[in-house]
Computed example of a mutant assay.
Amino acid sequence: MSIRRAGLSGLAIALCSLSPVLVSRSLAHEIVGNRFFPATLGIDDPGVNDELSLPTFDSFKTGDIPPVRQRDVSGEFSKRITEDFAISFGSTYTFLGPVDATVPGANGFQNLETTFKYRVFKDPVHEFVMSVGLSVEWGGTGAQSVGADPFNTYTPTIYFGKGFGDLPDTFSWLRPIAITGQVGYAIPGRNFTTTFGIDPDTGLSTADTEFHPRVLNWGGTIQYSMPYLKSAVVDLGLPDFIDHLIPLVEATLQTPVANTLTSGTMTTGTINPGVIWVGNKFQIAAEALIPINRQSGTNVGFIAQLHLYLDDIDPRGIGKPIFGGPVQPASPFARN
């Protein structure tokens, strides 16, 4: 699920020229051999499952001049059609703080989003998985006052994940490490928008054209699974709470690559250190949002999420693929 970051508030557009930063929301967890890939908050993981992220909450200051405090509350539901194919639906409600005493804040829904995702490869021995997907942001379904575009945006994406459980015994302490990543290409349904107005000084008609860039959305995570360490490497006798943690660092980046006449080509995004606590039927996660440059934001924000594993909560009901029988629940704890 994509939400608008810096440079998309309608109230800020009235003051300055802004650039969009898109951050993808994650919605799924995946198990490959002994490897459990949790749902992460910055990018989507490489699997398909029946799950619900509700709520996800974030807060940060945008890269606008002057900056705007933005808070988002979002939810996303993912439903498997078959064991390897899922469709997800997501929505975000945005609160924008006032710019100053003369420009009030705004709030409203972002555009609805739908993602179609298909798992194309899974190698349990080498803990590797890959999926492909297409996300559609439905233009005109959200409020333009909070930056929702009036046109659709289509984003084909490749997702992958790799665990290091196949390392030799001499590197056994590195086996709990896993990486995930995604690369998407966002294609706006409209190349440009022209706004007509009247110059207050001369009374003459004016025309302002904004080009909508095609954006490379890319990012990745590196994570260290304490559940994997305990059940597939060595049990250190740590407290149970610690054995449920997955510390990680994410990067979520966006680079305009085409139709960039008015947007420029600067890469924006955040680096997100955080931690996930995983249970058998849900997980709780929190991360810091550290902007990589001034255009990405003006302070460190945060994001937190409650994520429910519907395929574990009700594997023969709402958590079962529409076509086909129940499949192996995505337990976060590796099995020897």
Rank of each mutant, 00 (worst) to 15 (best):
S2P: 03
S2F: 13
I3H: 15
R4P: 01
A12S: 14
I13H: 12
S17M: 08
S24L: 02
S24P: 02
H29R: 06
E30H: 02
I31R: 12
V32K: 00
L41M: 11
I43D: 00
D45W: 03
P46Q: 11
G47V: 08
N49V: 11
N49K: 06
P55E: 03
P55Q: 05
F57M: 14
D58E: 12
K61V: 09
I65A: 15
I65C: 04
P67I: 02
D72L: 13
V73S: 03
V73Y: 03
G75I: 01
F77W: 12
K79S: 09
R80P: 03
F85A: 04
T92Y: 05
T92C: 06
T92W: 06
Y93G: 05
D100I: 07
P104Q: 10
P104T: 11
G105A: 10
A106S: 15
A106E: 11
N107P: 08
N107A: 13
N111R: 02
L112C: 00
K122G: 03
D123F: 04
P124M: 06
V125P: 00
E127K: 08
V129D: 00
M130V: 15
S131P: 10
S131W: 10
G133I: 10
V136M: 05
G139N: 05
G139V: 12
G139C: 11
Q144S: 15
V146R: 06
G147N: 05
N152W: 10
T153H: 02
T157A: 08
T157M: 11
T157K: 06
I158N: 01
G161H: 04
G163V: 05
G165A: 09
D166T: 05
L167F: 15
F171N: 08
W173T: 13
Q182V: 01
Y185N: 01
P188H: 10
P188F: 13
G189L: 10
R190S: 15
R190D: 14
N191I: 00
N191M: 10
T194G: 11
F196R: 14
I198G: 09
T202F: 10
S205D: 09
A207Y: 07
A207H: 07
A207Q: 08
E210R: 14
F211S: 07
V215R: 00
N217M: 01
N217E: 02
I222S: 07
P227A: 02
K230T: 01
L238K: 02
L245K: 05
L245Q: 05
P247C: 07
A251D: 01
A251F: 09
T252N: 13
T255L: 05
T255Q: 12
T262Q: 03
S263I: 06
T267C: 10
T270M: 15
T270I: 14
I271D: 04
V278Y: 04
V278P: 06
G279Y: 09
F282A: 12
Q283T: 04
A286Q: 15
L289D: 04
I290M: 15
S296E: 10
N299V: 09
N299T: 15
G301W: 06
I303K: 11
L308D: 01
Y309M: 15
I313T: 07
R316H: 15
G317E: 12
I322M: 12
G324S: 11
G325P: 07
P326L: 13
P329Y: 07
S331A: 12
S331K: 05
F333G: 08
